[in-house]
Structures are given as structure tokens and as C-alpha cells.
Computed example of a mutant assay.
Amino acid sequence: MVLDMSRISDLQIKSEALVKMRKLRFLKFYLPYSFQSSQKKSKILLPGGLLSLPNELRCLCWMGYPSKTLPSRFDPGNLVELDIRDSNVEQLWEGKQDIVNLKKIALDFSENLVRTPDLSKI
């Protein structure tokens, strides 16, 4: 699923919105480069955070990811690409995760990032 955020003013997502999308493999919140420089905050609002992301997710591209961490119920073991540039993330997840499939990770301009997980098995 790809959402072009340049065409949306704000999008409020409920905490359980993605829980039932078990077969979702690709999730991208897209913002064209020309819009990126003018955006100071995320257009996506998560007032209750996210309960989970689908564990089958292979690609997560969410520029300006608004939460401080990925959902605790999310198992990132199937992720091949994680691109959450310019996010509010402080840390990706707690503890060690089996992320042997992860080939690309982009955390550029995530100014609140204070802790990264053990990436030695990538």
C-alpha cells in the first residue's frame, strides 16, 4: 500500500488500524522531495500510537514516522527494508530481534534517535 501524503492535509490513524492487515507486505507513506523540505511535522497523527504492524511486513517506508518506537507487538523478522527517515523515533525496539532479512535501513535526520539495536546479524 502506497499513500501519497502530498495530496492529504492530515491523516489520523487509529491505534488498531493496521492490526487486521495480516497479509500486508509493503507499506509506504510517500512524500515527494519538493514537499519534504517544507514539512516540519508529520501529516500522520497517531493519538493512541500503533498497537502493531503486520508481522509479514517486508518493506516499511514511513518518512516522518511520528512515534518514539516501533510497536512492541511488531516482529520485524521479515523486514527487508526499513526506511523511517526524519522520524520521531528514539529507539526502534527493545532487546534483540532476529532481523536476518534486513538489507536496508535508513534513519537519516531522525534527530531523537538515542539508541540503536544490535545490527550485527544483518
Rank of each mutant, 00 (worst) to 15 (best):
L79H: 01
E16W: 10
I84K: 03
G95T: 11
R73Y: 14
L18R: 06
L50T: 00
D86R: 11
N55I: 05
F29H: 03
R22L: 15
L79T: 00
C61A: 07
N78K: 14
E56Q: 10
Y30N: 09
Y65S: 07
D98G: 04
I84S: 01
D75Q: 05
E56Y: 03
L70K: 04
Q39V: 10
L50K: 04
R22E: 15
D75W: 03
E81D: 11
C59K: 14
R22H: 09
R58Y: 09
L51I: 12
N78P: 04
T69W: 14
S52C: 08
M63H: 07
F35Y: 08
L79K: 02
K23L: 08
W93Y: 09
I99K: 02
D83S: 10
P32D: 05
F35E: 12
L53W: 04
N88F: 12
L53T: 02
R73V: 01
S67F: 06
P76S: 00
S34V: 03
N88T: 10
F29V: 11
L18M: 15
G95F: 13
P47H: 10
S72A: 10
Y33W: 11
L51D: 15
C61T: 07
S52D: 10
G48S: 15
N55Q: 05
N78M: 13
C61F: 06
I99C: 13
F35A: 14
I84W: 02
S42I: 14
L57H: 00
D86N: 15
L57P: 01
R85C: 14
Q39A: 15
L50N: 09
G64H: 08
D83E: 14
L82G: 01
E90V: 11
S34W: 06
S87H: 00
S52R: 07
L79F: 02
L27Y: 06
Q36K: 11
L57Q: 02
L50P: 02
Q36G: 08
L50Q: 04
F29W: 01
C59H: 12
S72P: 04
Y65K: 02
K68M: 06
E16L: 09
